[in-house]
């Protein structure tokens, strides 16, 4: 018997109010409503969250792993992009 899988949905959970939604994994579901239900049962059964997002996996646009060097490596030697690179003048106080 051939088996057609339901579409894949990516699941994002907000751990608690004020935090951002974090990607936690994926579920199969026939539509958005079922995806929320399945995500609830799969990813929040141990009190992991207070809010769920589901997004069709087909709607995710990903960077090409082959572009890794050109996209990400140039950032590796730019220490001045990190706030820790700079000395904060004393009269600035807490930033």
């Amino acid at each position: 018997m051939s088996k057609v899988n339901w579409p894949l949905w990516e699941v994002f959970v907000r751990g608690k109010a004020g935090l951002s939604h974090k990607h936690v994994g994926s579920v199969h579901a026939a539509d958005a409503e079922m995806a929320i239900a399945n995500a609830r049962d799969l990813y929040t059964r141990r009190s992991e969250g207070v809010s769920l997002w589901v997004v069709p996996a087909s709607a995710i646009v990903a960077s090409d792993p082959a572009d890794k060097d050109s996209l990400f490596e140039p950032a590796d030697d730019k220490v001045y992009r990190h706030p820790t690179f700079y000395d904060i003048p004393d009269d600035v106080g807490h930033m």
């Binding site: 399945n38 049962d41 799969l42």
Partner: peptide, 11 residues
């Protein structure tokens, strides 16, 4: 019928 339903029914 589906892994997701397995979890749901067991919950």
């Amino acid at each position: 019928p589906e892994m997701e339903l397995d979890i749901a029914l067991m919950n």
